[in-house]
Nucleic acid binder design. Structure first.
Lengths: 392, 392
DNA sequence: CCCTATTTTGAATCCTTTG
DNA sequence: ACAAAGGATTCAAAATAGG
């Protein structure tokens, strides 16, 4: 029997536009929790319908009896039935099954995130590769406050590993919000090692007796970085092992749709209540950092058509080593190098001038103005802002 | 044909006592490089004779085409034949074969370290588990200066992964120098995430043309931490993929025996010359740190790891009344006071020397430089600024 | 010699759209 | 499908060059 727990808040919070509304979407039950076995539930969903999967599968911890702290108190370890497997073979078969099911529901441009520890992550990673997923990064979550090693027989296990993979070999077309990640990291590229505290305090779900609802609840900050890095507002995020609902709660807050699958009714119920209480961020707070890649393309010729630059104008590079003449059709003619191959696009001409294979002509070529040399890219910016004004 | 390259310096530097002398030891060719295929060479060695294996196998990078930097310069990729495999299956078969061969030569109490990237480490880790090795930790080497992601399509790949495993399930009896690691880490447990620069500068081996001898030479600081953490002086350290000889050079410096296996004659020859030039540290610099639970906080070891101060260096106070020897694990050994309790952190050693209860070792101990005595605190400032740069 | 500016380089699975 | 073209993209540290 399938129980679909719809989230009322998610519906109320939905914004206009088909891509942002909740509910059934081509057979995909948006913004809801499917209670049941993840492989069975995944197989009911339409193929190629999900943008991002985040999976926190059982770690298969294989703990050897109970662990005590130096003061003889007992460590509350993960000993739930769902984390037990008879053998590595059994764990591999389970991993293979859910990965294949995930693969089917993923869009061709979709990506998968999996988190694990050394107990299981090597098996998951190898299986991913065997199934022709394409690893994009492995990410290390460094914990600011890990559990110490009580016996003093190993290094403090202070991290967990995430794998980020595209659905298909050579994966192209996936979402990576490079500029946003860079901006969030002091304007240098975001690295593969992330630092976050473990989930505790108010964020940690507790039952009426004050016991933690789920033994391995992940911090929202970790999931938020994942969604902000590799999905867009309105995307569909699926979590096949929803647990306490962190993925869904963060997805809702960040204006992404979610589909959660959870077998355990206690977890599913706690997740539903948690998600209902989430207030989505306003659109303005979700606007992504401007991406040069996604900006509309402008043909150099259109600058001429708009009168921003006249045919016959001479362009130079920043150090005035090369010169090129602007022609009426939007091509450049190199002044210095005579003969064939001296005419071409701004990019081709820049490459030819320097003897390189490639060149971004927008930033290479400059125009003499009253205030000195300026890159022709500044003219492109003028066109883009004019287009933006006209569109409103 | 087997060529055994014996290292003369290693013989001359050897100390009295069977466990520290070089040469054939029950069939184990100590302190030498075996030139040949690692599986063939391993199978010739006596079983259960090695304490520690460090392995840096081919990563199977599977690079697609050439990559250029934004300035159009070409990235010098690892495209050597030894890194190419036909398929994951072929790589797995190779991995299985060398792991089994390593397993045979390891003592029952021996441990194995393997380093890799996401291209291969998941397969290595899964195979380790399949072969009944027992994973103790996975360790993340965070690079202070990784190569950036030039196309802005992924997170900067800023780390590599190491797996530390015992030979047998439930592994017992292995060496872990807990106290030394803790003392080297500001008196808190050493974590599973380590920060080191990549190998460059003077440490990087270059040929007569100034080209790097080996494309993937590892930093000595990384190997030193491994040997200091998980081996004892006099132990036998084996590297089945010796390459430029980092493992052997560090082992010799730290008073461990080494056995290196390398197929490529150019690499083997470069390694031999490198190892010959290594001066082993004096015994006094190697004795293990005392198990003092309440040792004072120090970060002194990081100066050693970063090469700002060499093990074996003599420190004095500002008026040159007391002297102490710097040891590889970051502790000091007082020269004047014989007997027990003369080894400890820089603070403890300073207090002991003066007969006081406490002492700030950073300002007490000085280093002779060309410009006179300088407090070691001036070196800490260097590390602090580096760490501040690397921290998030 | 020093100080500053520029160039080089490192285990990398590194693009997208149009025709 | 494939080929061609547009045009977007780098951080830390060491080595080298210039003043």
């Amino acid at each position: 029997m399938k129980l679909v727990v719809r989230n009322g808040e998610a519906r109320r919070a939905s914004r206009p536009g088909a891509s942002r509304s909740s509910g059934l979407n081509g057979g995909l039950p948006l913004d809801s929790i499917l209670q049941g076995d993840c492989i069975a539930e995944l197989s009911r969903l339409p193929a190629h319908s999900v943008d991002l999967v985040f999976a926190d599968p059982p770690y298969n911890l294989q703990l050897q009896g109970e662990l005590k702290r130096p003061d003889d108190s007992r460590v509350d370890a993960v000993d739930d039935a769902w984390d037990k497997f008879e053998s590595f073979q059994a764990y591999d078969a389970f991993t293979r099954a859910w990965l294949l099911a995930v693969r089917r529901v993923l869009k061709p441009t979709g990506t998968l995130w999996v988190i694990g520890s050394y107990h299981n992550i090597f098996r998951v990673g190898a299986m991913l590769q065997d199934l022709d997923f394409w690893i994009l990064n492995d990410i290390v979550w460094r914990k600011t406050n890990p559990m110490p090693n009580f016996r003093g027989r190993r290094f403090t296990n202070a991290h967990e590993t995430l794998i980020w993979a595209a659905r298909d070999p050579g994966g192209k077309g996936y979402t990576f919000n490079y500029e946003a990640m860079k901006a969030a990291n002091e304007d240098v590229q975001m690295r593969s090692d992330w630092l976050f505290p473990i989930c505790s305090g108010h964020e940690r779900l507790k039952d009426d007796d004050g016991h933690k609802v789920h033994p391995t609840q992940k911090p929202e900050a970790l999931i938020a970085r994942i969604l902000l890095a590799s999905s867009k507002p309105g995307d569909v995020v699926l979590d096949p092992f929803l647990g306490s609902g962190t993925t869904a709660a963060v997805a809702k807050r960040l204006g992404r749709h979610f589909v959660g699958i959870e077998r355990d009714s206690t977890y599913a119920e706690a997740a539903r209540a948690r998600i209902d209480a989430v207030q989505p961020l306003p659109d303005a707070a979700l606007a992504s950092a401007p991406s040069a890649r996604e900006a509309p393309r402008i043909a150099f010729a259109s600058l001429i058509e708009r009168g921003l630059i006249a045919p016959g104008t001479m362009l130079t590079d920043a150090k005035s080593r090369y010169r090129a003449l602007v022609r009426a059709d939007g091509t450049l003619s190199l002044e210095t190098a005579p003969g064939l191959g001296t005419v071409g696009s701004i990019h081709r001409a820049g490459a030819l001038a320097q003897g390189l294979d490639a060149c971004n002509g927008w930033t290479f070529w400059h125009l003499e103005t009253g205030e000195g040399l300026r890159p022709i890219d500044s003219l492109r910016a003028v066109v883009r802002s004019e287009m933006a004004m006209a569109a409103e």
